[in-house]
């Protein structure tokens, strides 16, 4: 029983970290229809800044600078590169592939700087843990749960109650009508990218913090696991991102916890289980759990 609780709590904490990354995907997708492959390297960029700056600025200062800088970088990426392209039909897919190019360049430079090092971020939690009845969980993961819950609620509120969110939703429904109604699409979009960039830097903290030993050149690859989380949820829904991330986190933790009973699937299945779950869900619901099927336009 303790074992199961342990797995569930571990999965929940892992899912909370995925949710921060998946939320970035969702914000970007909703604003621009782009699946950002550069998210992993943006995350690494934010983490790297914290690692370099925390000695001089303290953790909080470094975090603030990193969130701001990553937000600016993401916004610049959208404004200076993506929006420069041909805005015609299919533009979102072209821009998706542009983000692959951006990812390659950014990741190469960051890997070159990080090399084989493990960089500590100087976060305040250290290796402290909290006991919850019979099980324990790392403080950094509790913080991740809180931060991702707050982030998701804020993004949800931003979408729902602000002018920006209204514009964003209007653009999501019908680009041309929104433009006619005076929505300044390009600014709405760029702001969304900035938000996603900030979230990426925030996610970097929890990916490099305690249960992990520090920031590595491969830390950004976690984005690959947040893909299925975002798609499972339906790509355009913050609540979906949360649900998808928790599902992926729980799947991973449970499969890893019961590896010996699941030996039929091959050992190490935990790492690919998220993808298997995603394909199964897509077979039943081709646009994810919370996605709605877009009406085909003739």
């Amino acid at each position: 029983m303790t074992g199961l609780l342990d797995d569930l709590l571990g999965g929940l904490a892992l899912g909370a970290v995925y949710a921060l990354v998946a939320l970035g995907f969702v914000v970007i997708f909703k604003a621009s229809g782009v699946l950002s492959f550069a998210h992993g390297s943006l995350l690494l960029f934010g983490g790297y800044l914290i690692a370099v700056l925390h000695d001089d600025l303290g953790f909080a200062g470094a975090l603030a600078v990193a969130v701001l800088a990553t937000a600016l970088l993401a916004g610049a990426l959208d404004r200076l590169l993506l929006q420069r392209g041909d805005p015609g039909p299919g533009a979102a897919h072209v821009q998706t592939i542009v983000t692959i190019g951006v990812d390659i360049v950014l990741l190469t430079e960051l890997s070159r700087r990080i090399g084989g090092d493990l960089l500590p971020l100087g976060d305040p939690w250290g290796d402290a843990v909290t006991g919850l009845g019979p099980v324990t969980v790392a403080d950094s993961r509790l913080a991740a749960i809180v931060v991702s819950a707050v982030s998701i609620a804020s993004v949800f509120a931003l979408f729902r109650y602000t002018r920006w969110g209204l514009s964003l939703r209007a653009a999501g429904e019908d680009v041309e009508a929104a433009a006619l109604m005076g929505v300044r699409l390009s600014r709405v979009r760029t702001l969304a990218w900035c938000l996603a960039g900030g979230l990426a830097a925030l996610a970097a903290v929890f990916l490099a913090a305690f249960p992990a030993p520090g920031l590595e050149r491969t830390t950004g690859q976690i984005a690959l696991k947040a893909f299925p989380a975002a798609v499972l949820g339906g790509m355009a829904s913050p609540v979906g991102a949360l649900a998808g991330s928790l599902l992926i986190g729980l799947t991973e933790a449970l499969v890893a916890g019961h590896q010996s009973e699941l030996s039929l699937l091959g050992e190490g299945f935990a790492d690919v289980a998220p993808y298997a779950v995603m394909v199964l869900v897509l077979l039943v619901r081709p646009t994810g759990l919370f996605g709605t099927r877009g009406a085909a336009r003739v």
Partner: peptide
Amino acid sequence: VGQKIKATDTDLSAQVSALRK
């Protein structure tokens, strides 16, 4: 008791839970 992992796994909480069990 074996626990197989990948090079990209850097959070071994789940493995530790399983081993403690």
